[in-house]
Simulated scan of single mutants.
Amino acid sequence: MLNAASTGFATGFVLILAIGAQNAFVLRQGLRRAHVFWVCLTCATSDAILIAAGVSGFGAIADSTPWLPDLMRWLGVAFLTGYGVSRLNAARAPQAALALSGEAEPLRKALLTCLAFTWLNPHVYLDTLALIGAVSVPFEGSAKLAFGGGAISASFVFFFGLGYGARLLAPLLQSPRAWQILDAGIGLLMLVLALSLALH
């Protein structure tokens, strides 16, 4: 049981560690101290649903719908491109740069953006439904449940650690210029990810 849980935790943590659109958004919300708890909870809960589906064998069902990957891919390209352009536009305007104490966007908008980053990202399905699902195959019964629980706990640890740990960078981001650089970096990252998805 312990071995299965630790294997699940390590697998989930390694897969989620790479900086992507979802992680960059959580980092930005953490730096702004804007709806951090709800954003982290939304990301982790979404991952938990997908991981549970992958461990329970939903990957086979996803493979039986050949049109689904392409649909998700182009929806992801459109969303990442739009968000990337919006961040680059924010970086161009000094008055739009966000100070740490600046007014936060509404919770509803933040959560919808967070959900889009999660559910419109084809890589999320690859990581959770396919890869985690495949690694869980050797485990059976209670050991499989332990593996899934370990992978899900890794997601909660990562997102809450990223969201609240981002505050350690706060002293470096007190100026509008620093926020311009951050927004420009996030915008470029989104466009690179969109291009990567389009060429996949």
Score class of each variant (00 low, 15 high):
87 R>S: 08
7 T>I: 15
72 M>R: 06
189 L>T: 03
19 I>A: 10
22 Q>G: 08
130 A>R: 11
12 G>I: 06
95 Q>T: 15
83 Y>R: 05
194 A>C: 06
152 I>Q: 07
176 P>K: 09
76 G>H: 11
52 A>E: 04
43 C>P: 03
134 A>D: 08
174 Q>P: 09
195 L>E: 12
19 I>L: 14
3 N>F: 11
80 L>Y: 00
16 I>E: 11
83 Y>D: 06
188 L>F: 05
165 G>E: 11
34 A>Y: 10
184 A>F: 07
108 R>F: 14
93 A>V: 15
8 G>K: 03
142 S>K: 13
114 C>Y: 02
33 R>P: 05
23 N>E: 04
117 F>Y: 09
190 M>S: 01
183 D>P: 08
25 F>E: 09
66 P>W: 08
113 T>E: 10
55 V>M: 00
106 P>E: 11
92 R>Q: 14
153 S>M: 13
57 G>C: 01
15 L>E: 04
191 L>G: 04
173 L>T: 11
119 W>F: 15
9 F>E: 01
43 C>V: 06
188 L>H: 03
128 T>V: 00
159 F>C: 00
26 V>P: 07
56 S>G: 06
9 F>Y: 09
23 N>V: 02
39 V>F: 11
55 V>A: 01
7 T>F: 12
185 G>Y: 10
65 T>M: 15
172 L>M: 14
191 L>S: 01
140 E>I: 00
75 L>V: 13
66 P>V: 10
34 A>I: 02
124 V>G: 15
19 I>K: 07
141 G>A: 02
171 P>A: 02
33 R>M: 03
146 A>L: 04
27 L>F: 14
184 A>V: 08
144 K>M: 06
96 A>P: 08
61 I>Y: 12
154 A>G: 07
189 L>C: 00
60 A>Q: 12
189 L>R: 02
120 L>K: 04
141 G>S: 01
131 L>P: 01
45 T>Q: 11
66 P>Q: 11
176 P>Y: 10
121 N>R: 01
106 P>M: 07
192 V>I: 13
124 V>M: 11
150 G>N: 08
136 S>Q: 02
102 G>H: 12
129 L>R: 00
91 A>D: 11
